[in-house]
Nucleic acid binder design. Structure first.
Lengths: 155, 155
DNA sequence: CTACCTGCAAAACGTTTGCAAGACG
DNA sequence: CGTCTTGCAAACGTTTTGCAGGTAG
């Protein structure tokens, strides 16, 4: 994937611009996040880094840094904290879905739907006189597979 | 408030129906939640109970129980966990707003807006073939007061 | 009277921090 | 070379658990 390389360069640019040093550890965390298809916990990110010597504390520190720089975003869900990247290619806002049966956490990848939510957020912003910079939207329920499976059992 | 009494009776009904024993401790936790205007952390709930002998562990156990029974709902936000009641008088879904400046966590109490979000959730449900039972929506930004304060400083 | 519930203290868990050594620029 | 960063281990705050005693139904 050429995209991974390109994004990585961009991220490193942001880090450098803020007077922070680029290290193999930060790069490793970024790499995992870029390649991740879904949202990961700190522990999962830590486990997926095997080619670089890294401590758990550094993963925490890197993620906090990335949050401050606006690179990454935390999504809290029932005790756990998931992380994902915010920039480049990702929508500025998107909806998360958590299946209460299989516990999978996925994105709802539908441009029109995402736009609907963004429009609604703007409406709220004007109506209430607030300034909305970010939004966490998580729907909970049954995913398509689990729904069909459970329906089949109860028939 | 007669409402507090009424709700309390209803909640105790639910607890009894599920074969769980009603105790002064559970009642105390419910009372705090019913009377609370905003969302509370476990520690805050614990502190507000003074007339009953109760241990922190019991507060945790009660809240978990209430969640399982569908009485209460957890709202995770940046490390902390807030709790609120789900039933009776409360909207089935409403939007939380967290101010990044003063850290206050409030509800967006606007029926029309809440309905907009519910409609949107239903749209997603049908479009993606999911079953949506619940939704966590938290907007992050600046509240009206902080926004004006900060604007005044930068002029 | 029995099953469930409670308080307490200990344990478990996730996250943060102090420090000396090391790496980036 | 100075500053920022790291790994390690200890500290920390929150949540869970085991257990003996207590209470609701």
């Amino acid at each position: 994937m050429a995209c991974v390389e390109k994004y990585l360069t961009w991220y490193k640019e942001i880090i450098k611009k803020n007077g922070i040093k680029n290290t193999v550890q930060k790069e490793a965390v970024l790499n995992v996040l870029i390649k991740a298809s879904s949202h990961l916990t700190v522990e999962e990110i830590y486990q997926q880094i095997k080619d670089v010597k890294i401590g758990l504390a550094t993963v925490y520190r890197s993620l906090k840094l990335f949050e401050d720089l606006g690179i990454a975003k935390e999504i809290p869900m029932g005790g756990a904290r998931y992380y994902e990247l915010k920039l480049f290619g990702k929508k500025p806002l998107h909806i998360h879905f958590k299946c209460m049966n299989c516990n999978a956490m996925t994105d709802i990848d539908d441009t029109e739907t995402n736009l609907d939510y963004i429009r609604l957020n703007q409406k709220v912003e004007h109506k209430m006189g607030l300034e909305v910079n970010d939004a966490n939207i998580t729907l909970l329920g049954l995913c398509k597979e689990c729904r069909e499976k459970l329906n089949a059992q109860t028939k």
